[in-house]
Design a protein around this nucleic acid. Structure first.
Lengths: 228, 228, 228, 228
DNA sequence: AATGAATGAGGATTCATTCAT
DNA sequence: TATGAATGAATCCTCATTCAT
């Protein structure tokens, strides 16, 4: 569904045309990005070939270069698009009127739902972008920071709402958020692999995890090697 | 420190020889694996070149092929070695005489310590191996399953010890372990990036996280969207 | 100054139009040739791209093809135009009423002045046209022959005027003229590079050169290896 | 004669081998340079293809890259080799024991002889190198400066020997030498094109030219527009 | 009169891999 | 045990040129 072959799109009224139809640039560009996300996501940056991408997009290679300049810049464009889509999905999944714990829950669910529905895009962000040098890495780091910040803030808010008081120390929350996001990413991969584990379940697991950890944190209960 | 240029290692008894000394196969193989881990870890599979690996190992390319057959099999060898090393580090870091929560704690610490000390090997296992087809992926999946099983078992034991009773449901623990490993991986990256956050702190954060989640799970306290 | 962007030329009466105005074919063609001369002159035939030329001319590529058919034929058109311009400049710089030595002098001056003012056109004629196959080479050969003939004739005339008699042998004069033109080309490059050497000076150097050689020729003084 | 196909060189004792024989690097490198000079000389830098060069050299393209790194650097190597060869030919053609006018004569003859015998190398130096950016241009500029300096010095010496006194002004001699070298280059092209004009004749023409111009210079006879 | 959309063909460069010694 | 010599097969990218409007 991500990728639509030009033949499908252009095959109007049984003309039997073999050449891809002329299409406005914006449409073609989207097709190319769709194809690129798919190939990059499955193969990784280096193993993906522009030939394959062009073919999947249903256009000739020069057109890909004409519109997207280079492999590197095509990859960056993929990252940017997928990162935005993910960020937006999370943002839109959250109703700001709800209490913080519900917001956290819904954010997690939106995250899992979106990554499950866009496994290639998610693979690009999660696995492949980190390998590349600056341009892409920066893009992804920004996304991750955005999400981490979002989570950090939710945790703080939830802590205040649930327990009153000033909330836990900045640093501790940062670690918690980091762990939470990492766990989410890992669970996303797990959930995507194992078809039977749905977004809801993953979100619930994580929420339990987070909620309890948070509660302990607030209550000052910390496990430490000496304690027992 | 991982990688030792052959010249250094082989310069015996001031012969003034410029060519790398003849060395027993085992030594040469280790040099090659060291080099390969470094290059694969930093560049990824596709972007790593056999030329670069051979040069870093201080030998000619044909020798690499003589000993390790192909790029693919060299990569697999790297994965196997690094996976074993990691598994062993975790196993050795744990004293079986201790109570379960201490064992969990020490396992986590060993994990973080080892990955921090072998970033290239860790990158291979964590980032690059997944991209490759079967041979490598299987290897890593085995490692991951091993660790997950180990953690699962520790959790079960800890739960029994701490709370009595039969322990939580298999499935829930699987999700928990998965999340825990993901969080650990994420924290490992965080800890490695941000120099000031040492293995200890990461382990502590995670332990708090896990412990509380676990307690809740045992006590039947679960967060659920309807609850509030 | 050679090249005028279409926007500047066509921006009439504040219409606010962004598209290049419709213009009579002759004007468009001149814009294209201006752009082509600039690009060809600076990059050489192969390294010049039709894209760049079209962009500099401020039109779309298909229009260039519509008016000038192909890269090859565009190049030929450039050569033709620049060759004519140079020939004309030399012809117009010479007053036929003057004695032959003055005519030669003025021809040289006109040559240096024109080439200095049209470095790109000169580069096309002098450097790039020779590399191409027949169509262009012939065009340039014609120019060169024209100039050489012009010079040959001047030399003959000057010889007659200065010394009386039938003038030197055809063949010798051909060599002399060839050398003179070559020297002129070389001096043109030198004069263009070293800003301080103006057309006048270059012409003077050459004139001295030629005049003396000519005198010797007439007087039958020839250097020969055996002579000393 | 410049280029030797590997088949010829390697076909020992009627083995009928079709694959090019293994050869020491130095030999292969020379073959590649021979081929490259030929192709670059005939087509120019851009129009020359590495494919064609490799084929003419009788090796595969990767080997060319292995030994000579890139098209650019192959081109530079050609320039360097041909420039050195030419400079050496001129240097070796001149007997330092002879008087200056004879030395000039012999230098010119050697120049014409060498360029006539190595038309492709000469084309590279004279026509194609100038088009390319720094690396090549610098190399050629150095050659040209070397030759110009050589000629300048000869002129000064000849002037002193022939006429006594301090010799003409630096600046005038520079112009003269520049013109002389340009004329020589032009005559070389002429001589090479028109088979019937041999090195001797070209050298003689030029020598007459130079000698007379020099005499005039020394005697203070200068043509000037006002003079007549 | 003018252009946005599109491509076939080719060119430089790299890489995993193999011989012959 | 070890290597210098060599290559088939991609891969990224560019360019002259055309078509449909």
């Amino acid at each position: 569904m991500d990728v639509v072959r030009a033949e499908d799109a252009g095959a109007a009224a049984g003309t039997g045309e073999r050449r891809p139809k002329r299409m406005p640039r914006a449409v073609r560009e989207r097709q190319m990005l769709d194809a690129a996300v798919r190939i990059f996501g499955r193969r990784g940056y280096r193993a993906a070939s522009m030939d394959e991408i062009a073919e999947l997009a249903g256009v000739s290679k020069p057109l890909v270069y004409l519109y997207l300049n280079s492999k590197e810049s095509l990859f960056t464009a993929c990252i940017r698009r997928e990162a935005q889509a993910l960020a937006e999905a999370v943002r839109e999944g959250v109703d700001p009127a709800l209490p913080a714990d519900r917001r956290l829950w819904e954010g997690l669910r939106a995250f899992f739902t979106h990554t499950a529905e866009h496994p290639d895009g998610w693979a690009i962000l999660h696995r492949h972008a980190r390998t590349r040098g600056e341009p892409s890495a920066a893009e992804v780091a920004a996304l991750r920071e955005g999400i981490t910040a979002f989570v950090t803030e939710l945790i703080q808010a939830a802590a205040r709402e649930a327990h009153g008081g000033p909330g836990p120390a900045e640093r501790e929350v940062a670690g918690l958020a980091q762990a939470l996001v990492g766990a989410a990413e890992s669970l996303a991969a797990w959930a995507n692999t194992d078809g039977s584990v749905a977004a809801n379940e993953a979100a619930a697991t994580l929420m339990n995890f987070a909620w309890a950890g948070l509660g302990n944190l607030m209550a000052g209960h910390r496990w430490s090697p000496a304690e027992r």
